[in-house]
Design a protein around this nucleic acid. Structure first.
Lengths: 220, 220
DNA sequence: ATCATATTCAATGATTCGCTTGAATGATTA
DNA sequence: TAATCATTCAAGCGAATCATTGAATATGAT
């Protein structure tokens, strides 16, 4: 006897979606999925999880309508099921930044230059990119760059940046980006390259938000 | 030894927000909070929960940055902490409607005329309201109407509608609304009044979304 | 067929969650 | 001061969640 009205039933489904996002590992997986579709063990590696554990989390994301899958040979590729997932994340970020002191502490601690490093808006980057007066630097790993990147960007993964700095023209301003608003790579890139005399700023957010805004991306 | 990086820490906070929304009772409480600030036992009553249980759920919402409180005498009034909470709900709804078959089943079962009952957009209602050629009908309980309602609306709670039907002018089109997109009252109102020969449609979503869009509201 | 690889499944134990009950706190009223 | 009302707290129990382990599927390669 489940005397749940229709509204109760709907709310239970919506609660399932929210609950499924309610785990740090799954949020991390979602951020990775937002870069493009990837196989289970690649995702497990990037998120620092055992394959079995990652598999179960990914299945939960799928059951909640947040992720979808495609089989190719012996690989199963997971991807985000819906562009609204990014809206959901954005709302989570806003609520956290505005209402949770723990978030504010972490941001002002580790990302303390966040305001000083005024981010370049997508609109501004698009305009300057068309004018040709900017180097767009993607500091994510190769494979994610290959899945999709901002049109015209060059890829130097954060780990290689120190070594490959010579590839950057010091005369042209650089705009760096990575996976999303809290991806540390782009902060580190700005910090490192500024010390070396480059003129560099961060792009607001990361590739997924650029892509969701319908702005031009390229694949390798 | 919590060797969580800053990103991990942020994700745990964002996960807390999501997890807190991940319970049907709390989603129901949030919908009620979206009507305006209300006391614990009023919220408990409306949500059909014991006071102690509602109190604990509300405290969770507060700890997660979703709700805020104000004391007035011996009452404690809870309200939504952030307008982004509505964005979050909207994203949950979209993901559910597009990706969860359970949601689709419930919608096509209980709300089967949802498409037939083409909802009036906020923009359209605003325009027609200014032209004066429409009756705006708020079918929520009195106390919620008193907190805030669409400017110019009249209030006949769903339970009184059959009895007070004479107050409505059959020559003027009616637009009915209630708490939100899945509030059954407005569907029932449309169904009932159409049977009685009225020309009536639903407003898309409910009062909270109207208010969030910055459209004119009144208080009693 | 046999083997290897990618993924999922099933079972376990530790932890957390949800609801109830009854007591405790805080503010108002008599 | 005592009594009352709104809310919160604390303890307890059953249910759900999470990570691990080892086994089971499924596809492709030898």
């Amino acid at each position: 006897m489940s005397s749940h009205g229709p509204k109760q039933q709907l709310f239970e489904q919506f609660a399932l979606i929210a609950k499924t996002l309610g785990h740090a590992h799954r949020l991390a997986l979602v951020e990775h999925l937002a870069q493009g579709e990837q196989s289970v063990d690649v995702l497990a590696q990037k998120a620092g999880l055992s394959v079995a554990n990652a598999s179960q989390h990914l299945q939960q994301l799928r059951r909640a309508g947040l992720a979808a899958t495609r089989r190719d040979g012996k690989f199963i590729f997971y991807r985000l099921a819906d562009p609204s997932v990014l809206d959901l994340l954005t709302a989570l970020h806003q609520i956290g930044e505005r209402n949770l002191s723990e978030v504010q502490v972490v941001l002002s601690g580790y990302f303390h230059d966040r305001d000083a490093m005024e981010a370049v808006t997508r609109k501004e980057l698009l305009k300057r990119s068309r004018a040709g007066a900017v180097t767009i630097l993607d500091v994510r790993p190769h494979d994610e760059f290959a899945l999709a990147h901002v049109a015209g960007a060059i890829n130097i993964p954060m780990g290689d940046l120190e070594r490959r700095m010579a590839e950057l023209d010091p005369a042209i301003e650089i705009v760096a980006y990575c996976r999303g608003p809290y991806c540390v790579f782009s902060f580190e890139a700005v910090s490192l390259l500024r010390k070396r005399g480059f003129h560099i700023r961060r792009l607001e957010d990361g590739l997924p938000e650029w892509q969701a805004a319908g702005l031009p991306v390229e694949r390798v």
